[in-house]
Design a protein around this nucleic acid. Structure first.
Lengths: 341, 341
DNA sequence: CTGAAAGCGCTTACAG
DNA sequence: CTGAAAGCGCTTACAG
């Protein structure tokens, strides 16, 4: 809101057009209800005065804002970028504006942002994943604002979701790794606390290991925030352990980029000395050398479908149908049999 | 806004606490004006009812929202990520919420988003660069919403700015390139139309070339949207020309990443066969091989200073002081003398 | 320290 | 097709 006194109001338009404020409002919101003659005159005045409706007032009176909010864990790397872009494009096509805010993977900040967005009148919310406190769930429930969880399919989540099965996706990749004969697996995971995607991915690896009849202690997990530098550090830690892994599976491509960087600096050859895998298949994966074996996630499709699902919740009050998207393993140069064969 | 009838209002709180709405409002906004005894009781009711102020109403009545909006060209790559993160942290520390929206480098979308953000009550705006239509400038002016341009210092811009001198920064890098003896420079620039940062960078290269007494036609410029794949294509185009450049200067690190990727695929050795440079020094630059010579931009500092400048405009109504930040050239493995010497 | 009341700028039944 | 009027949920001088 500005305090500039010169900003014209509905009333100003009505007065100079010689009609009531109701008529001006109708010209703007349901023009078909106004006869062309008056409508034309009113719109002229609107233009001439440079009138723009006050959003707060409109939101309060109409109880909708055509705004969708998204709270994502981070904008610092491209994990969510592509999906969000598709999400926004789809919303825009339907006349909605997307406002994004980032929580830095901090649950408390996420909660603040959710409240901020709802308070600012968001008609619907896009959230990432399912880990959230009871408080937030109750708040969302009480406010009655439709919300959708993306990036993580969960049959019985508190929120309907549009995403993929992180556990199965990573399991499929791990099975490829194990099929090559790897028996000591290092895992560089994101912080699993408060992050169901990260947790599920680690579980997927354990599933595969169990499925292959290997002992649980074949797997060594290091947790670290998603970040290239952290990925590099974690890789060094794993490789300095007594029992070096022959394959290092990373929780996402960003960590894997760090691992490859560290490998290069340590003079460890990938995949000859050790294999490295990622998750997400973001553009980054294509410029690494060796190119990165990873799990391809259909980011744009996910963004688009999430927008469609959320729009239907917002516009028709439907309860939101959970949708499962398929991922697939991308086998590339960073993975080979132990010994690089 | 929700239509859920159960959401409690100020009035509900007042009624059950047995005070006036004015008192409840005061407890929330200027608690020191209310005696502890009543304040305590009121806040209890607030908590018990789960009351949250209606934002639109509050904004309309108080004429401020504690919201800052940012319109950035893209979230798809990390160019703006780090600076924006710092910007947000600084705002958060001062009790402001940042809402971000992306324009996909489309001036019309940018204008829409600016309007959307202002309509939604943003107390201030962060924009990127200075290229903007007259209409937008007038609109901003008329609305009286403080706005700041970042990522681009401009002494006499329509908006105060916090940023660096793209032209001089790139000139400095180009001078290093020329000093090594390069005489045929390929340039992979971002789209310069509507993007003063991209344009200034190309100008900087031309400045250096002129300064070194070389002919203008030493420089071949290809423009393409910022994107790894486009960088790769543009690199191929340049290298297939009759007169191959000995150095390819890219408008940013993302394009450079594409160039390095293409070089690898074409069997062109960097820096032996051709040198490659970037701009920005984002994290990406560190994982490329060879490591990328680029211009280091103080992203976090820029974000922080932009927040401080904008806050002072918003809170104290100051007119906003333009600030120039320093960049520096980072010499790394991707640049060498012609022939890779 | 607290309340009554006006006002913020819109939308939308309800009449006509 | 159009207007008068109530109402959306708050804040803030103004009194007391």
């Amino acid at each position: 809101m500005t305090s500039n006194r010169s900003v014209p109001t509905l009333y100003d338009v009505a007065k100079t057009a010689g009609v009531s404020t109701a008529t001006v409002s109708r010209c703007l919101n349901s023009p078909e209800q106004v006869v062309e003659h008056t409508r034309k005159r009113v719109l002229e005045v609107v233009h001439q005065l440079g009138y723009t409706p006050n959003f707060g007032a409109r939101a309060m009176a109409a109880k909708r804002t055509y705004t969708i909010g998204a709270v994502i864990p981070t904008m610092e790397n491209a994990i969510f970028a592509r999906g969000l872009q598709a999400f926004q494009e789809e919303l825009r096509a339907r006349g909605y504006t997307l406002l994004v805010s980032s929580s830095a993977y901090d649950p408390q900040i996420e909660e603040e942002q959710i409240r901020a967005l709802i308070a600012r009148g968001a008609d619907g919310l896009l959230l990432i994943g399912h880990d959230r406190t009871e408080t937030v769930a109750e708040y969302l429930e009480k406010q009655g604002t439709p919300a959708l969880a993306a990036w993580s399919f969960e049959e019985k989540g508190a929120l309907p979701s549009v995403g993929f099965d992180n556990r199965r996706a990573m399991q499929a990749l791990a099975e490829e790794v194990l099929a090559l004969g790897h028996q000591r697996i290092g895992v560089i995971s994101g912080i699993t606390s408060g992050n169901d995607r990260a947790r599920r991915r680690v579980e997927g690896i354990r599933d595969a290991v169990a499925g292959a009849g290997l002992a649980e202690n074949c797997v060594t997990v290091v947790e670290t925030p998603y970040d290239i530098a952290n990925g590099a550090d974690a890789f060094a830690t794993l490789m300095h352990a007594a029992d070096r892994p022959t394959a290092v599976m990373c929780g996402n491509d960003v960590l894997a980029a760090g691992a490859l960087k560290a490998a290069r600096e340590m003079g460890v050859c990938v995949p000859h000395d050790v294999s490295v895998t990622g998750f997400d298949d973001i553009e980054l994966a294509g410029i690494l050398s060796p190119s990165l074996t990873t799990v391809h996630v259909p980011h744009r499709e996910m963004g688009r479908k999430a927008a469609q699902a959320l729009m239907s919740m917002v516009q028709h009050g439907t309860s939101g149908k959970t949708a499962l998207l398929e991922t697939h393993v991308c086998l590339r140069g960073s993975l080979a049999a132990p010994g690089g064969l």
